[in-house]
Each structure stands twice: as structure tokens, then as C-alpha cells.
């Protein structure tokens, strides 16, 4: 039960590795970026899951006197920032891929390396 109870960490680990694998193993630059996105998303999930408090509600306080249990809002706020950063990174990466495609006429990493060696 202990192992399964921490399933959110298993999901985080699995996603992290899937993303990392795509990053390393794929030659296609867009697929690399997709891998990077999955890699980052895994971390978002980690943060969000560790904010969850069992039995807690959304952190919206309607009645200040009631001692409600609610989830920690801070990691969620943090991760909003991280998501923005992730989007910017992906966008910038894609923009660079477009420029690479214009310059090399390919987006395959091995092909690009071959072209660079020749020049």
C-alpha cells in the first residue's frame, strides 16, 4: 500500500523519464522539444501533487471563522510561473527550429551535424 499510495510520484518519475528519453533518443528537433515539454510537465505535476492536503478543499476562504482544511495554494502559484516559463521555452525552441529549417533545410539532428561537418 505504501508503494501504491505514493502513485503521484510514480507518475512524476515515469513522465520525467519518458520526456528525457525522447530528448536523448530522437533526432527530430521538434520531437526533442516535445520530449522537453513532457519532461517539464512531470515537474508541474510533482508540485501540484505535493500541494494536495488529504481531505482539503480548494483554498477559497468564504468564512474566515471556520477552521477548514484546504490545499496549499503556494505550489500551485509557483507552478503557474513555471508553466509560463515552460511555454516560453517551448515557443522559443520552436522559433529556433523554424530558423534552423530555413538555414539547413532539415530538422533532423544527424543531418544537420553532417552539414556542419562539411562546411
Amino acid at each position: 500500500m505504501e508503494i501504491l499510495g505514493l502513485y503521484n510520484y510514480w507518475v512524476f518519475g515515469a513522465l520525467l523519464m519518458i520526456g528525457f528519453f525522447a530528448l536523448i533518443a530522437r533526432q527530430n528537433l521538434v520531437k526533442k522539444l516535445l520530449g522537453l515539454s513532457i519532461f517539464q510537465s512531470a515537474v508541474f505535476l510533482l508540485y501540484i501533487s505535493l500541494a494536495k492536503v488529504e481531505g482539503g478543499t480548494a483554498p477559497i476562504i468564504l468564512d474566515p471563522t471556520a477552521a477548514e482544511i484546504f490545499s496549499n495554494p503556494l505550489p500551485q502559484v509557483l507552478i503557474l510561473t513555471a508553466i509560463v516559463v515552460g511555454i516560453s521555452t517551448t515557443a522559443l525552441g520552436l522559433a529556433i527550429v523554424v530558423r534552423i529549417r530555413e538555414a539547413y533545410d532539415t530538422i533532423e539532428d544527424d543531418e544537420i551535424r553532417r552539414l556542419d561537418r562539411r562546411s
Binding site: F20, L23, L29, K32, L36, F39, Q40, T89, L92, G93, I96, V97, R99, I100, A103, Y104, I112, R113, D116
Partner: peptide
Amino acid sequence: DRQALTAVFKYLIMGTI
């Protein structure tokens, strides 16, 4: 030169990791 683009892509991947 165009190699700046590949260099920066590599940097972007590594830096983000």
C-alpha cells in the same frame, strides 16, 4: 552564421534540463 542556431538549440535543451 547558421551554426549559432544549432549551438543555441543544444544550449536550450541542456539549459532547460
